[in-house]
């Protein structure tokens, strides 16, 4: 992702899955529809757990199971959620061919796992979450708001506590 001046960054760690889920739930709780949340991180860095939390924050009762197989799962809660997984996608062209960007223009929230597989398909206003694993159950998060709307979200998160 390009570094932009117009951004707000929050870095934080969680020590167990419950904390990761709580972080996700807080993110989900702030969203108001139309946002693109880009998750970037290797296998085992907490994308699944974070997404489950975001879904909870959107008022979705179901478990958000992995969409790796069919690329997109849709859920309805307080807001519509498009849970997208680009694990199998090789580049922007393929994502465009499949029509992934169509999900990003509606009123729903889109959470995109493996977002870096197709780096150029997203709106300019986007919430990027970089995930990394520390020792054992520790997970590191770098949350980057780009564009006014996502910057506001990150600033709201900065006022919260996730311990």
């Amino acid at each position: 992702m390009d570094t932009l001046l117009n951004q707000s960054i929050l870095e934080l760690n969680t020590n167990k899955p419950e904390e990761t889920q709580k972080l996700g739930k807080s993110i989900g709780g702030i969203l108001s529809g139309g946002e693109a949340v880009l998750l970037i991180g290797e296998l085992g860095t907490g994308k699944t757990t974070l997404t489950q939390g975001i879904a909870k924050g959107l008022g979705i009762e179901e478990y958000t199971k992995s969409p790796t197989f069919v690329l997109v799962h849709e859920y309805q809660g307080r807001l519509h959620l498009n849970h997208i997984d680009l694990y199998r996608i090789e580049g922007d062209l393929e994502a465009w061919d499949i029509g992934i960007e169509e999900y990003l223009t509606g009123n729903g929230v889109s959470v995109i796992e493996w977002a870096d597989r197709a780096p150029r398909i997203y709106p300019d206003d986007r919430l990027i979450v970089e995930l990394d694993s520390g020792s054992d159950t520790e997970r590191r998060f770098r949350i980057i708001g780009e564009g006014q709307r996502s910057i506001t979200i990150v600033n709201k998160l900065k006022e919260m506590s996730f311990d």
Binding site: Q52, K65, S66, T68, F69
Partner: peptide, 18 residues
């Protein structure tokens, strides 16, 4: 019952990759 996250076959594929 159903999986709450990854499917069993997906776990086989991803573990094999690792």
């Amino acid at each position: 019952g159903r999986t709450r996250d990854d499917a069993a076959g997906e776990a086989f594929d991803k573990s094999a990759r690792v």
